[in-house]
Design a protein around this nucleic acid. Structure first.
Lengths: 138, 138
DNA sequence: GAAAAACATGCAACTAAAGTGCATAATTAA
DNA sequence: TTAATTATGCACTTTAGTTGCATGTTTTTC
C-alpha cells in the first residue's frame, strides 16, 4: 500500500483513484490552488467530483481553505497531514498581487490579539497582500 | 447643504439622491453590509446602481471592502470619512459565526509582522471568527 | 442660458464559481 | 452474495459580481 493511501486512510478517507491523484497533485504544488487549477491538472474527471473531493479533504482535515481576497477559494494541504484532528495551526497567508499566487507562511504564526469584552475567538484568517519573493527579484 | 452632501463633495463624489441615501444607510449600520443588505434597505433603485454606487464610494475612499470568509463582499464606512486620501487604517474585523455579522474593530490595529526575505507587504486583511458580544450574552 | 461634454441611472444580459439532485458505479459491511 | 453505504458523472440551479448600452441628469464651457 502506498504512502498516500495510508495518509488518506488515517483521515478516514477512502483511497479512490481520483483522491490519490489529487493528494499527489496538492503535494507537488507549494502554493494554494483553486478548483480551476485542480481541474486544469486533470485531463479526465468531472469538476463536480473534484469539487466534492477537495471538500471531503477539507472536512477530514487534510487541506484548509484560504480566502485571499481574490474572491476565489483556494486550498492547500495542511502542514502536518500525518497528525489527525484539529491541528488548528493558525499560520498566515501571503497573496502576491503580481503573480496572484498565495503561499502558506507556516512558520509565521498569527500573534495573539486581545478582543473587546464579550467577543470569543474561535478561528482567524490573516492574509498579507504584496509582492512575493519571486516577483520582487525580477 | 446637508452634512452628508459635504462629505461626499470632499471625496469628489457627486451628491445624488441615491448616494445621499446610501451614505445615510451606511452610517446607521454599525456592522459591515453586503450588497444584498443594501438592496433590501432600498425599496426603489436598481441592484446595478447600488453596486456601482458602493464601488464609487470604495474607489473614492469612503468605504472599505471586507472579505470575512463568507464568500460575499461586505462594505463598511471608513472610520474617518472627513479626512480625504489613503488613510490605510489597517484595523481588524470580527466575524460572528452565529449571527453572521461582521464588525470593524477599529481600535484594534493589526500588529506588525516580519516577513521572509523578498516579501513586500502592501496591505493586509485580518478576520477573527468566533462569537460576538451580542451572541455570547444570550 | 443654451449646447456640449461628462457622468449617473436603469434595464438586460453575461460570467464565473459554488452548490444540489439524481441516477449509476463502486466499495464496504452483514 | 446480498444489502447498505459511499463515490462519481452529468445536468442543472443559484448567487454574486460585472459589463454594455440607451436614456436621463448634471456640470462645464462658451
Amino acid at each position: 500500500m502506498g504512502e498516500i493511501e495510508l495518509v488518506l486512510k488515517k483521515h478516514q478517507i477512502r483511497p479512490t483513484a481520483i483522491r490519490l491523484l489529487m493528494y499527489r497533485f496538492l503535494t507537488e504544488k507549494n502554493v494554494a490552488v483553486t478548483l480551476n487549477d485542480i481541474e486544469a491538472g486533470f485531463d479526465k474527471s468531472e469538476r463536480t467530483t473534484l469539487y466534492r473531493t477537495i471538500k471531503t479533504f477539507e472536512k477530514k482535515g487534510l487541506v484548509h481553505q484560504i480566502d485571499d481576497g481574490t474572491g476565489v477559494a483556494k486550498y492547500a494541504l495542511d502542514e502536518n497531514t500525518l497528525k489527525v484532528g484539529d491541528s488548528q495551526d493558525l499560520h498566515l497567508h501571503f497573496h502576491c498581487t503580481k503573480c496572484n499566487e498565495t503561499t502558506c507562511l507556516t512558520d509565521h504564526k498569527i500573534p495573539h490579539i486581545s478582543l473587546p469584552k464579550g467577543f470569543v475567538s474561535k478561528d482567524m484568517n490573516l492574509v498579507i497582500k504584496g509582492i512575493c519573493d519571486k516577483c520582487s527579484n525580477t
